[in-house]
Amino acid sequence: MAASAHGSVWGPLRLGIPGLCCRRPPLGLYARMRRLPGPEVSGRSVAAASGPGAWGTDHYCLELLRKRDYEGYLCSLLLPAESRSSVFALRAFNVELAQVKDSVSEKTIGLMRMQFWKKTVEDIYCDNPPHQPVAIELWKAVKRHNLTKRWLMKIVDEREKNLDDKAYRNIKELENYAENTQSSLLYLTLEILGIKDLHADHAASHIGKAQGIVTCLRATPYHGSRRKVFLPMDICMLHGVSQEDFLRRNQDKNVRDVIYDIASQAHLHLKHARSFHKTVPVKAFPAFLQTVSLEDFLKKIQRVDFDIFHPSLQQKNTLLPLYLYIQSWRKTY
């Protein structure tokens, strides 16, 4: 089996927390979720979201995140109150960019949308954001926290390059993509939290790379249903696996070995980020709550012996909000 052949990389499970039942964490995340308004986002309300009498641009960002990046939404709820709305805006910006690729039928249209967001970032730093909910909220975040323009532009530029429907040539190319998107998002989150620390940035770099790799793995069944495969070609070739094997949902050992190798790289990034947690300011830990969902996925895929098409991998963990709150309460990542 794939797991038994390579099992030495995987460390002990961390979500089991001995003695936790003896201490009762304060009510927090679930209460916040219940208090949030929840009407559906419609095209009509989106168009009017920044106008008078609408929910408001902040509510639009929150709803977009809740629907399109639920794990990011849950993590954002546990940030300090003064930072929450800015991170909602930042993550909503990322969602807007991420959904361009799947929402257009022609690359030219995707490039036009990316050009809109490039100009939007430029206009935000000229205090002239367009009348668009996410743009307005992002402008507020930039003004409030003096966010670095370079990180925002890196996210747009990398998403634009990724409009080509090509597999990553190697794991390094996937890591570079993750660094310029997910890690950049974390650098900006640290700025919102008021953290300027080399060790925190180092952790953000590795956690962002782990996030990018896990996202690529999780999306494999969806991409396969659209006749697309984006997994690193070098690892596929190493194990003699073709793109057609993934399109046919082949579950042979060599296919699972490909998934094992890729998942192991995410695991190593996560492990390395945690190896120097004592040197990272505690104030930075809330920015890294996504490690909970990353670890949850890596454990699940290990349990199914790296069968990327196993139905259990597509099921939401209903206990994730609780695990996130516990992680926040324990002040760790």
Rank of each mutant, 00 (worst) to 15 (best):
V46K: 06
S50W: 06
S50D: 05
G51P: 07
G51Y: 14
P52G: 11
G53W: 12
A54P: 13
A54Q: 13
W55L: 13
G56F: 09
G56P: 15
T57V: 10
D58C: 07
D58L: 08
Y60T: 06
C61R: 02
E63R: 12
L64I: 14
L65K: 02
R66S: 06
K67W: 07
K67C: 10
R68L: 07
E71S: 07
E71M: 08
E71C: 10
G72W: 13
G72T: 08
Y73L: 14
Y73C: 04
Y73W: 15
L74R: 02
C75G: 07
C75E: 10
L77Q: 04
L77I: 08
L78E: 01
L79S: 13
L79H: 14
L79Y: 15
A81L: 13
A81M: 15
S83W: 13
S86Q: 06
S86K: 02
V87L: 10
A89C: 04
L90M: 06
L90K: 02
L90E: 03
R91F: 05
A92I: 03
V95K: 02
E96Q: 11
L97T: 11
A98T: 09
Q99W: 12
V100C: 10
K101D: 11
K101M: 14
S103V: 13
S105T: 15
E106W: 09
E106H: 12
I109F: 05
I109K: 12
L111P: 15
L111N: 13
M114L: 11
Q115T: 10
Q115N: 14
W117F: 07
W117L: 06
K118V: 03
K119C: 06
T120A: 13
T120F: 09
V121W: 00
E122T: 10
E122W: 07
D123E: 11
I124P: 01
I124V: 11
C126H: 15
N128D: 11
N128Q: 14
P130L: 08
H131C: 12
V134F: 03
V134R: 02
A135Y: 01
I136G: 03
E137A: 15
L138T: 03
L138R: 02
W139Q: 06
V142F: 04
K143G: 06
R144M: 11
R144F: 06
R144S: 09
H145T: 04
N146E: 10
N146W: 05
T148K: 11
R150Y: 13
R150K: 08
W151E: 05
L152E: 01
M153T: 14
K154G: 07
I155W: 03
I155C: 13
D157N: 13
E158P: 02
E158R: 03
E158Y: 13
R159D: 03
R159C: 05
D164R: 09
D164L: 15
D164T: 15
D165T: 11
D165W: 10
K166S: 13
K166V: 15
A167Q: 08
A167Y: 15
Y168I: 14
R169H: 13
R169L: 10
N170I: 01
N170H: 11
I171Q: 08
E173M: 08
L174R: 02
E175N: 03
N176K: 13
N176P: 00
A178L: 01
N180C: 14
Q182M: 11
S183M: 01
S184T: 09
L188S: 12
T189A: 09
L190Y: 00
L190H: 02
E191F: 01
I192K: 02
G194E: 07
I195V: 15
D197W: 02
L198H: 04
L198T: 05
H199M: 11
H199C: 08
A200Y: 00
H202F: 05
A204H: 01
S205F: 03
I207W: 01
K209R: 09
K209M: 05
K209N: 03
K209L: 05
A210C: 12
A210P: 00
A210Q: 00
Q211G: 13
Q211R: 09
G212K: 00
G212E: 04
G212R: 01
V214D: 04
V214G: 05
V214Y: 04
T215C: 12
T215N: 12
T215S: 08
R218Y: 03
R218D: 01
P221R: 14
Y222Q: 14
R226A: 11
R227L: 12
V229M: 10
V229L: 13
F230K: 08
P232V: 01
P232T: 05
D234Q: 06
D234Y: 00
D234A: 03
I235Q: 06
C236V: 11
L238C: 12
G240F: 03
V241C: 14
V241E: 02
S242H: 04
S242Q: 05
Q243D: 04
E244H: 04
E244W: 04
D245T: 11
F246Y: 08
F246D: 03
L247T: 06
R248G: 04
R248V: 08
R248Y: 04
R249D: 08
N250F: 11
Q251M: 15
Q251V: 14
K253Q: 15
N254H: 15
N254S: 15
V255M: 09
R256W: 01
D257W: 06
D257N: 11
V258C: 14
I259E: 02
I259K: 02
I259P: 01
A266Y: 00
H267V: 09
L268A: 10
L268C: 08
L268S: 14
H269S: 01
L270H: 00
L270R: 00
H272D: 06
H272E: 11
A273V: 03
A273L: 00
R274H: 05
F276N: 05
F276A: 06
H277I: 07
H277E: 09
H277W: 11
T279H: 10
V282M: 08
V282G: 13
A284S: 09
P286Y: 09
A287I: 05
A287G: 06
A287L: 05
F288Y: 08
Q290V: 09
T291E: 01
V292H: 12
V292Y: 12
V292Q: 07
S293A: 12
S293T: 13
L294Y: 01
L294P: 01
L294V: 10
E295V: 10
E295Y: 08
D296Y: 07
D296R: 07
F297D: 03
L298A: 01
K299T: 12
K300L: 09
K300I: 05
I301Q: 00
I301D: 01
Q302P: 01
Q302T: 06
D305L: 01
D305T: 03
D305W: 00
F306A: 02
I308M: 06
F309E: 01
F309V: 01
S312T: 10
L313N: 02
L313M: 12
Q314W: 08
Q315N: 11
Q315E: 12
K316A: 11
K316Y: 12
L324Q: 04
Y325C: 13
I326P: 00
Q327I: 05
Q327D: 03
W329N: 06
T332K: 12
T332Y: 14
